[in-house]
């Protein structure tokens, strides 16, 4: 178990360094005048002139050689100081901390809803494998999977926010704003994971030990609880780990669509504004979130499956 955590910690350090360096190198290659872009971001496009751009350059030291800025950045990183956003002038770590809370809320809510959809649908489809419900859920899942996640979001937005006016369109000002983005992300996830639950549960239902449990007189519910759930859960949790990358990708798109004040939205904005420290911070936050969620999946597998524990 300690080994698991250490391995992921190493990966996290690796992610931090590689993302930071990669985005730094990429941003140094950017063509064009950075100071004009930043001045436009700060003061608005109508108030940019040579003097404003000059002031920005002097303040941020943009005319130093690249390796000095890079070394300074690495040193700051060791002290956990991510620098200041070039646009807002506030510390990146402060901004990211603010954004990260919203992203965690969105991702957590989405995963919970996805679980609440996928588990019953998958188990029900497995119990009646080949029946109309199984085929229907396959059809719905195939249709949902053939959309980019933002098209699902657009559809929900049109129906619930614009036509029926039941829910707010975008932004964040209370729990009502969470419903549509979380539901969108959850539907995209459940479309895939409900099928995984179904296959995993069908496998368990066909197995010798499950049939023996039924034969010895346990009811379906008892057999599912004592012999089915844990065995069926393991492949599902492993798959969840594989799906995590698409969760993070979905977060980027969904946050942009619903103007959700999270890290993904921040990253898209930072790329648009060429805000180097912010890009590094946001990409790193998403990368570390990815690692942290992976660690949770590892630990969950470890807890569910006693065979892994005895192997160590």
């Amino acid at each position: 178990m300690l080994q698991l955590i250490l391995r992921r910690l190493l990966q996290a350090a690796f992610v931090t360094w590689s993302v930071g360096t990669l985005s730094f190198v990429l941003m140094r290659l950017l063509p064009g005048d950075m100071e004009f872009r930043i001045a436009a971001g700060r003061y608005g496009y109508d108030h940019v002139d040579l003097a404003a751009a000059e002031a920005v350059r002097a303040e941020l030291g943009l005319d130093r050689p690249g390796w000095q800025i890079y070394l300074q950045w690495l040193g700051d990183l060791l002290r956990f100081n991510l620098g200041d956003s070039l646009v807002s002038g506030l510390p990146v770590s402060h901004e990211i901390a603010h954004l990260l809370g919203h992203t965690l809320l969105l991702a957590g809510a989405a995963m919970l809803i996805a679980l609440l959809i996928a588990a019953p649908v998958g188990v029900w489809a497995a119990l009646r494998a080949g029946g109309w419900f199984d085929r229907l859920s396959l059809l719905v899942s195939a249709l949902l999977r053939a959309q980019p996640v933002f098209v699902i979001g657009l559809g929900l937005l049109l129906v619930f926010a614009l036509e029926w006016r039941m829910l707010p369109v975008a932004g964040f000002d209370g729990p009502r704003y969470l419903i549509l983005p979380a539901l969108t992300l959850a539907l995209a996830m459940a479309a895939v994971s409900s099928r995984v639950v179904r296959h995993s549960a069908a496998e368990v239902l066909r197995s010798a030990y499950f049939n023996f449990a039924r034969v010895k007189g346990l009811s379906l519910r008892q057999a599912l609880q004592r012999h089915g759930a844990r065995n069926a859960a393991l492949p599902v949790v492993v798959f969840l780990g594989i799906q995590l990358a698409s969760v993070i990708e979905g977060v980027v798109m969904i946050e942009s669509l619903f103007s959700w004040p999270g890290v993904g939205h921040g990253l898209a904005h930072a790329v648009f504004n060429r805000d180097v420290p912010m890009i590094q911070g946001a990409a790193m936050a998403l990368g570390l979130l990815f690692v942290a969620l992976n660690l949770l999946v590892d630990l969950a597998c470890h807890l569910i499956d006693p065979r892994q524990r005895s192997a160590h």
Binding site: Q11, F14, V15, S18, V19, L22, S23, L26, M27, L29, L30, P31, L244, A245, S246, I248, E249, V252, M253, L267, A268, V271, F272, R274, I279, A283, L286, G287, F290, V291
Partner: peptide, 21 residues
């Protein structure tokens, strides 16, 4: 491989796309 896999694909694409808008 591990360097590339460390980040979700779209985030990496976003970073490189930011290189040349």
């Amino acid at each position: 491989l591990n360097v590339v896999l460390a980040l979700p694909g779209l985030v990496l694409i976003l970073l490189v796309a930011g290189l040349a808008p």
